[in-house]
Design a protein around this nucleic acid. Structure first.
Lengths: 159, 159
DNA sequence: TATTGTTATACTCTATAACTATA
DNA sequence: TATAGTTATAGAGTATAACAATA
């Protein structure tokens, strides 16, 4: 369910059945996403961030004070995993753990002032690149694409 | 340029500018893709494959005889990387390197008969799951989505 | 000289599972 | 008992760069 086998055809029929249409559309979704994501990896690397690190900082930028557990759930990784990513990020001085006084088991996560400035620069660059990448779509097309993706997401989530 | 910071809004304006629309659409693309991809990771893991291994086998299924260099370019990773993935796959007996007699620097990659049966089973499962995931989209919607993604891909590639 | 593949190195991410501290 | 976080372990993927064989 990734982007390999891109041009396969299960039959030589002129009529493309619904099943094949859907598989091809998924492959197209994967290919387009991965193409853009690869540029994103390079882009955040120029800011000395990995994609998971970017995800953490960007999440904190708009949801400061989340716990590690909440962050793990949101990013769909394990808490042990999040712990390691945070360890590395804390060393950079861009974010910090603060113990929750009301539940001393819990750490709440905050950007430092330098971290805020950092992620704002990265996000500005990110946004600029996204606009560049998507300049080939008209506003009407973009609205339609977003809407279709929302429909698809709901469909996936309702399984 | 990943799926974090999903609900951010750079302003409180009622009018959503073109720039923000495009960023939000990219975020939606990432979110939808990652949601489906996570299911794909689980699905291929049930067949004892990682996603990169699945990509290699699926590529070979439809392009047998590619060289390692060609495979690396197609999957957009380094040749050293491909070498390692192939090392692991070769141990399973699902594929093999064969030296090209016309250019002895080159290895050409082939599925074994067991490998063909294996990847055909995985692909059948893959296709079934994709149809399931996308059952919330009508045929018309699916065609539109595919077309928009193709347009977007061309736009990205023409940069 | 250039190209194909291999190897060495290093790092990040990832999961699982056992562990500590707290609730 | 249950939960939040940590740590240990293990493995895959990734890149870079130096290397050998071949063209």
């Amino acid at each position: 369910m990734s982007n390999a086998g891109q041009s396969r055809s299960h039959s030589l029929a002129l009529y493309e059945g619904e099943a094949e249409l859907k598989v091809r559309t998924w492959v197209q979704l994967a290919r387009t996403f991965l193409l853009i994501q690869r540029q994103a990896v390079v882009a955040v690397a120029e800011h000395e961030l990995t994609l998971p690190q970017f995800d953490v900082l960007a999440t904190l930028r708009f949801s400061e004070g989340v716990s590690q557990q909440e962050l793990a759930e949101r990013l769909l990784v394990t808490k042990g995993n999040v712990c390691g990513v945070i360890d590395r990020l804390e060393k950079t001085g861009w974010m910090e753990r603060r113990n929750d006084p009301r539940d001393r088991r819990t750490n709440r996560l905050y950007l430092t002032p330098e971290g805020k400035r950092k992620i704002d620069r990265v996000l500005a660059d990110h946004d600029r690149r996204v606009e560049q990448v998507m300049r080939g779509l008209t506003v009407t097309d973009t609205i339609a694409l977003r809407s279709l993706l929302e429909t698809l997401q709901k469909s996936v989530e309702s399984e």
